[in-house]
Amino acid sequence: MMLLGLIPLAASVLLALTSGILSRRLSPGVAVALLTLLALATSVATGIVLCLAAFSALARQPLVAAAGGWSRATWRSWDQLPVGWGVLAAAVAAGLLAGACVYLARATRELVRASRACRRLVVGHHKLVITRDERPTAYSVPAGTGAIVVSTGMLRLLSAGERRALLAHEAAHLRHHHASYLMLTQLAAAANPLLRPLARNVRLAVELWADQVAADEVGDRRIVARALARASLAATRDEPSPSVAMAIAETEVSARVRALVGRPRRLYPVAVAAALTLTLASSTTAVALTWATHRQIEIAQLAYMQAQVRAR
């Protein structure tokens, strides 16, 4: 019975593997929304299944059975998951829950800190903060009303068209609530580390999404690609990139440039259907196992009460 519980785990692994294709081939807005949904559903399903496995193994222990008032024998005939595995599942579930809590706390702290900083910045409804700094930097801060922070070094580097592309890219992050998607997928990945590659791919897809919005606004994908190229090269000259980045065959920037100068994307119904099926399967498993376990508790309790009556 509890073998069914492996479905969410398998779905997590498969989702992590397919998320790369989905994030690169689907229209980025669709990819981000879809992957966020799938990550959350799979993560919750995994957590539920782990808890059920832990409960089901521990429910056969004399102390637990006595406290719950159910029959150990009835329970044993239903599920033979070794106690050791149950304890392991409980430990893993507790660890993952703690991981998710740590992530939530950290994200909240950083958001509050950024929000406080934002309030002190002079931000009109244009939301632009220009720092007098020769190093080329640009980023968006989703806290409060949101802010786009760009250094003068970055602005001097770019032509008017490229500046427009950069600003449109950062504004798109704020307008389309990209930070929320990032936080939700990273929360899902904290609660289920198998989904970490998926979270990385969502990060890429979010950048692709903002690039696309910028390209639509400027009306020329090559201008966005040039802005990205110029900014990235200048930043690399400033401080050599860490050796970790060198090891990765295709990094974020090259994927983005390829998406901008390559052919337009199209929807892949088969890939979407496969990912949705995986998630549906793991969610259904979690619900079905929960229901079956609940029913088993009731049966075991009934057996326990009958035994009590017979004993009198």
Binding site: A114, H173, L182, L228
Partner: peptide, 28 residues
């Protein structure tokens, strides 16, 4: 910024990236 609160416009580059970007800029 491990929780991903801020989104940066640029990321780290590999050598292949640099080549690709230089080609792109030379092209245009």
């Amino acid at each position: 910024n491990r929780a991903g609160v801020l989104s940066r416009f640029i990321a780290d580059l590999s050598h292949q990236d640099e080549q690709l970007l230089n080609d792109l800029l030379a092209d245009s």
